[in-house]
Amino acid sequence: MSSSLKIDGLSVSYGPIPALRNVSIEVPEGGFVSVLGSNGAGKTTLVRTITGVLYLQKGKVTSGSITRDGQDMTKLKTRKIVTGGVAQVPEGRMLFPQLTVEENLRCGAASRRDLAGINDTLSEVFDLFPQLPPLQNQLAGLLSGGEQQMVAVGRALMAKPSLLVCDELSLGLAPLIVRDLFLLLDRINKEGVAVLAIEQNARIALQHSTYAYALEVGEIVLEGPSDELRENQEVQDLYMGGGGDSREAYAAIRREVNR
């Protein structure tokens, strides 16, 4: 299968501080890939590099390449990358708080010029998130965290991407909302959009993705099909609190308390 995104031997540093070392990741066309990593592993750095905003943080690609359709993306401007079909849901949502939900969504289509097409995509996004139409004229800064994340995903979709990069979608959200969001990602993925979910929440990411990578201190330490990683003892120890199933962990705690 051809790949939607191919990262090859990527190394990135902020000044003298290396943040990524020799990272290789591949997202197949229409695939759902996740990258797991704890705090400071370099997840956001990876996203910044893909979307070409590393320079804003004074970061530099020291070696390696990111290719898409055979074209190197590390030298491209962000707007070229966005027009090329890569949209990002940034960490912490980063909505425009003083704009309404609709204006936020329309901002997502900033790279497009066809008003009719934009209106159609807007209707599609509103269909995908039925919670949003009633909030259309609400200021985005006043929404709840889950609603804001939906707007953030919808805003990314407004660019009609073929690859959606999500940075810590689950950050600060209730488990039920996170589950809903990932179900939506599944739906978006079914419609042919490749998804790269960068997550600290390994459990949910492994449930929904088909292939996964584990990033630790800037390096890929583990990779494989998500089902296999889910069974992997190391992954369970590292990212799932070692207890395997949460129900089991909960039961263990109850036993402790009752004793």
Partner: peptide
């Protein structure tokens, strides 16, 4: 809208291709 996006969060605006 791009003006307002730049005012609210210019990094976010960059990310959207503005």
């Amino acid at each position: 809208r791009a003006f307002a996006a730049v005012r609210d969060r210019d990094i976010s605006a960059t990310l959207l291709g503005i």
